[in-house]
Simulated scan of single mutants.
Amino acid sequence: MVGGYKLHGAAVTIPPNGYTYSDTGMFQDTDGSWYILTSADHNIVQINKLNSDGSIGARASQLAAGAYEAPGILKVSGTYYLIVSGKTGWRSNPNKVFSAPSIAGPWTGPSNIAPEAEKTYNSQNTFELTIAGSQATTYIYMGDSWDSKGGPNSNHVWLPIKVDGSKKTLTLDWHAMWKVDVKTGVVSFPKAGRRYEVADAEVIGKRGVVGKGLLR
């Protein structure tokens, strides 16, 4: 773990154009298919399906609308929402949302996921978590809140996502404290109580659990 790593073989690229890539994300569709999301060469966000052996397969779609990275996808009622960040180094920026009727596109947008001046509450998208509860389905934005150098003082911003299916938009409101019951999927906003750090969470399956079955 302390180092001494060596490069073996050629650099991994993504088809069909052999782009190098970075800032990867993952998305599993409702049919079980997995996709890798990348910020590829030439500022292109590209989505490729993974083969059954885990290798990178054919391109499903791409977004060439600007200089974006940190892609993440969630699917709600048949609509795909692609969340991306601008490229501003360790500095936060207003993350954007595109929508499409299919993983193949076409992608329309962008819209802001939060008020532009808030710069996504000083965070950058990293993953969208879906909690399908017995009473509600909740979608959670999981963002990285970087310090000026991407170092150990960096933190996380997790917030519930509001979905407007008619406008095809996603919205984040700031909440200093909130919780979701991972069994029911119901979100509530306590006025006072203990604040839990992400490091205190216990992960069970695909659910993050804090305290008595609550993500805070």
Rank of each mutant, 00 (worst) to 15 (best):
E197N: 03
E116N: 05
N112K: 04
Y21P: 00
T108N: 08
G25N: 09
S154Q: 09
G205W: 05
T108G: 04
Q135H: 03
E128H: 10
V157E: 10
A192H: 04
N43C: 14
Y21N: 04
K191W: 02
T108D: 08
E69G: 01
A58E: 14
T126Y: 10
M177Y: 04
R195V: 12
I131M: 01
G9C: 07
T13H: 06
S92I: 05
D41K: 03
A136K: 15
N153D: 12
N155S: 14
L7N: 07
N51F: 12
V209G: 00
Q46G: 15
S39V: 02
G208T: 01
S148N: 09
V210P: 00
G18A: 12
L159S: 06
W34T: 02
G150V: 10
T184Q: 00
A64S: 15
W174F: 14
A100L: 07
S33W: 07
A64W: 06
T24S: 15
F127L: 06
I56N: 00
S123P: 07
G32E: 06
K168Y: 02
K6N: 13
Y81C: 08
Q46P: 14
S102N: 14
D147G: 03
R59S: 12
Y21I: 09
K119E: 10
T171I: 04
I47C: 01
H8G: 04
T130G: 05
E118L: 13
Q124L: 10
A199S: 09
S22K: 12
L63S: 12
N48P: 15
T20P: 05
L129G: 03
E116T: 13
G133I: 03
I103M: 10
T171R: 11
F98L: 05
H156S: 13
D164T: 11
E128R: 02
I161R: 04
Y80Q: 13
A136I: 01
T130R: 13
G25V: 01
G18Q: 12
S111G: 09
T126H: 06
G25D: 12
S52A: 15
S154G: 05
G18E: 14
P106T: 11
A117M: 07
G86A: 10
V209Q: 07
H156F: 15
A67C: 11
G133Y: 03
G211L: 01
G32C: 05
T24Q: 14
T169G: 08
R195I: 08
N112F: 11
D173P: 02
V12C: 12
D200E: 14
T169E: 06
S55L: 10
G18M: 11
